[in-house]
Simulated scan of single mutants.
Amino acid sequence: MSIPLDNLVITGACGGLGSALAAEALARGAKVALVGLDLATLEALAAPAPGRCAIYTPDVSDSAAMQAMAEDWTGRFGSPDAVIANAGVAGGFDTAQACDLAVFRRILEINLLGVATTFQPFVAPMRERGRGMLAGIASLAGRRGLPGNGAYCASKGGLIRYLESLRAELRPNGVRVCTVSPGYLRTALTAGNRFAMPGLMAPEAAASAILRALSQGQEQLVLPRRLGWLSNALGLLPDAWHDALLLRQPRKPRAGDPGATPIPGLPADATSRAPAAPPESTVH
């Protein structure tokens, strides 16, 4: 099966993977809706192809704003062949800290709810046409909980299940749904990580693989493939062994910690909190 990718909507187009996806799609001659929060980055992306782009800066969890974006894009350029819900944030999480609950909520709003609000305006038109591709950028972290990273893992695990549900719903209508599960990409979201990142991949390589998979109508993509095999192998370990192995790794930086990436829309007091207990204290 060959799916045209001449008209795309890409959220998170300011980030490493989103920028790479947009740049490659534009280089191929596609029309691209650039959705993100950094206006300067989006303008730089659009500069080489001003007649084939439109820039939008909504909060992806705001359904009214996303509806308005979809209506404007469709009115100007027509219905998209594919919608890539790529917007996402990451941050460490400590359940013992009350202020971290705001971090959990915001990560879920962007990483999980944001995908549904991105897709929603396009589902009915795609059903009516009997074709289209909806792609959600999940993560291998959604397959297994990681100590100190519960909010992110929960958001991506929930996303994987949501995409499975949507795939089954839309299959009779000819609309494809693809779950993309990258491992570690060399982007701002991983720049502050202090733990090992096997299979670290350049966003440009990931973008090429994703667009190729979508054009072929694939429903599952793991990047890189060998990391998916490693994840499956680790999943066969007893839980106690798996947990002990992961507890030896440094934790993901929490909001406000050195190396943490900003989380848009996070209340200011979410970064004013007591320090978490060092993870070493839980290792025996």
Rank of each mutant, 00 (worst) to 15 (best):
P4T: 10
L5Q: 14
S19P: 01
S19D: 12
A22S: 14
A25M: 01
L26E: 08
G29N: 03
G29L: 09
K31V: 15
A33W: 08
L34C: 02
G36I: 00
L39S: 04
A46N: 06
I55R: 03
D59W: 04
D59A: 13
Q67A: 14
M69R: 01
M69Y: 08
G75M: 04
F77R: 04
G78H: 03
G91V: 07
D94E: 14
A98L: 03
C99S: 14
D100Y: 10
A102L: 09
V103N: 11
I107G: 07
I110H: 02
T118N: 08
M126R: 12
R127V: 12
G130A: 05
M133H: 12
L146M: 13
G148F: 04
N149P: 01
G150H: 06
A151E: 04
S155A: 10
S165T: 15
E169F: 05
R171A: 11
R176Y: 02
T179H: 03
S181T: 00
L189S: 11
A191N: 11
G192T: 01
G199A: 09
M201W: 08
A202D: 15
E204V: 02
R212S: 13
V222L: 05
P224M: 08
A233H: 05
G235A: 10
P238Q: 10
P238S: 06
D239P: 03
W241G: 07
Q249I: 05
R251G: 01
G256V: 06
A260G: 12
A260I: 02
P264N: 08
S272V: 14
A276W: 02
A277W: 04
P279R: 15
S281C: 12
V283F: 12
V283N: 11
V283D: 08
H284G: 12
